[in-house]
Write a protein that binds this DNA or RNA. Structure first.
Lengths: 332, 332
DNA sequence: CTGTTAGCGCATTCAT
DNA sequence: ATGAATGCGCTAACAG
């Protein structure tokens, strides 16, 4: 590529490079006359300042990193979009990487992003505590955790009220006569899966309801495999799933067994990815405000950067029950 | 954030900064003794070289930009994932931006990415010719167009054989007795929609088949609205849709009208996003190798960068017919 | 093999 | 209001 630098502009307009810099950044007053000359030269040359040189000089890159499990998962894609829109509006660029929940990949990505001198990090990692990240935070790296919190880290986060989400689902099911529940949850080491597990068990401890709980994985495949292999599944009135993808897998496996949803058994999801509305049967689920999560997290992060906040702040968003066709009123 | 630089490492290990640089880059031999000292200091300090300083020095950022319509669209998310995986394996990082097909946003993104000194660009833009981009390409910017080519630009690209895709669909439909076709296409100004339109009209020009063609938009909404408002839709044996999302919208609108797919009318999609397999009815469509497109495009781009190729190369991937449940054999 | 030095493009002192 | 000089962190050319 070519290389028109501030020098070229200075030369063409017949001023010093500092003057050029001043008109471009507005950091100090410049006479109208010279300003015009500079602007003209800039246009003529199609010059645009090197933000990498600027970064080196200013110590800020106006770039935010985002480490997430998989951009291919609509849940994350929507969060990313929320972050992207907010950040761009405020002059920041987003650089991201999919980690596939892999600890090594996660660390590698962290190194890469750090070496790129990101100003802040949005992080949705595997559940395990990450010493390297922890250390960087202590050293001043601004991070906000999204959807998942890492144990032992006292930092900012944006999550959804998982307990409330589970209770919304259970309320709906119980009001409609359900009395026994099977919970097909996501990855065991994951923050959200754990929270949902706890909420579920708490609600069940009255002993009034028959129930079982299993950790699997947050994917269609995991749901499908689980339901395919699980015998006597009709002993339950309802199956709660760790997310919508699991629910899709469960429903498909059930139908293959000749079991109809919701006529014979109710199934619920979690997330409300856009597709859930169009699934057959349309999924009863709990909506997480994905786009908003991305926005809020970015807002929080930019605030931390701007104000040099070391204090952590947490935002807990409200989930919303969405009743559709995959749950029914039992005969009782 | 803190700032442990190469100087700190040099000081701690008692060598010069060039020695540190040499062991880190392997650009020149260093005695075992000093190497060890340096490595130890690096670990102790948790030092990682500033790739922004490196970029400034080397003139390469090891960063690739990707401008696309919307990361939230699974079609693009999968392409991005393919690109991401390939690029990361080769030491490159991906910066992306969603343009929503908006010309201004597209240009703004281009400026931002350029100022970040990306080494190359993956581009899926609105269909219209983009003079600014054109100019940058002439100035040496390495670009590969993905899925969509811009008119008047002679650059590298990776697309799918749209004509073949349409013919695969039409072959399947015709073999199964269909004789009249309605094509609900995507955005009119888009390269792929145009290609598919041409392929369709060419096949129809024999006059043997009743047919109509309309441009709408590449979204669920567009398909839904179109089908809701279209009267006498049952005069056609089959509806071809510009992509899977449109097909979903069409099918839903049809069902609301009490028209059953495929019993009363066949519907096809284009893309084969992962969800199409699980739709009810499972969608007959044409698979675009999305992940592979991202990979190939990245491979091509890195090649252009490495070899300083100015010559353009085009890769046309083969689409694949996927017959599922949304098409039937007509009685005839 | 190793240390010293110049300079990548820019913003910011410090002079004037 | 303007120009000259300095340094951000790093690599490569230049001396030993």
């Amino acid at each position: 590529m070519k290389k028109v630098s501030i020098k070229d502009v200075a030369k063409l307009s017949g001023v010093s490079i500092s003057t050029v810099s001043r008109v471009l950044t507005g950091s100090a007053p410049v006479s109208k006359e010279l300003t015009e000359k500079v602007i003209k030269a800039v246009q003529e040359l199609g010059y645009s300042p090197s933000s990498i040189a600027r970064s080196l000089r200013n110590g800020a890159t106006k770039t935010i990193g985002f480490i997430l499990p998989d951009i291919t998962n609509p849940f994350f894609a929507h969060i990313v979009r929320g972050a992207e829109d907010y950040l761009r509006k405020h002059g920041y660029t987003l650089i991201f990487g999919s980690s596939d929940q892999d600890k090594n990949e996660e660390n590698h990505l962290l190194d890469v992003l750090l070496s790129k001198h990101i100003d802040g990090l949005l992080f949705t990692g595997s559940g395990d505590s990450n010493p390297k990240l922890l250390r960087k935070i202590e050293q001043g790296l601004k991070v906000v955790f999204l959807d998942r919190i890492i144990r032992g880290v006292n930092s900012s986060y944006v999550i959804v009220d998982n307990k409330k989400g589970i209770n919304l689902l259970l309320d709906h099911l119980i009001e409609n006569g359900h009395e026994s529940f099977l919970f097909v949850n996501g990855d065991k080491n994951t923050f959200s899966a754990k929270q949902r597990h706890v909420a579920f068990m708490e609600r069940m401890k009255s002993g009034k309801y028959k129930h079982e709980h299993y950790f699997t994985g947050f994917s269609y495949r995991a749901g499908y495999n689980f339901a395919s292999q699980f015998d006597d599944i009709l002993e339950f009135d309802a199956i709660l799933c760790g997310n919508d993808l699991i629910a899709f897998g469960v429903i498909d496996a059930l139908e293959e067994k000749g079991i109809h949803v919701p006529e014979q058994i109710s199934v619920t999801g979690f997330d409300d990815i856009p597709f859930s509305k169009h699934y057959k049967p349309a999924l009863t689920t709990v909506r997480q405000p994905m786009y908003e999560m991305g926005q809020k997290a970015s807002e929080l992060l930019l605030l931390m950067i701007k104000e040099q906040l070391s204090t952590a702040e947490g935002i807990i968003l409200d989930p919303e029950l969405v009743v559709r066709e995959s749950t029914r009123r039992t005969k009782i």
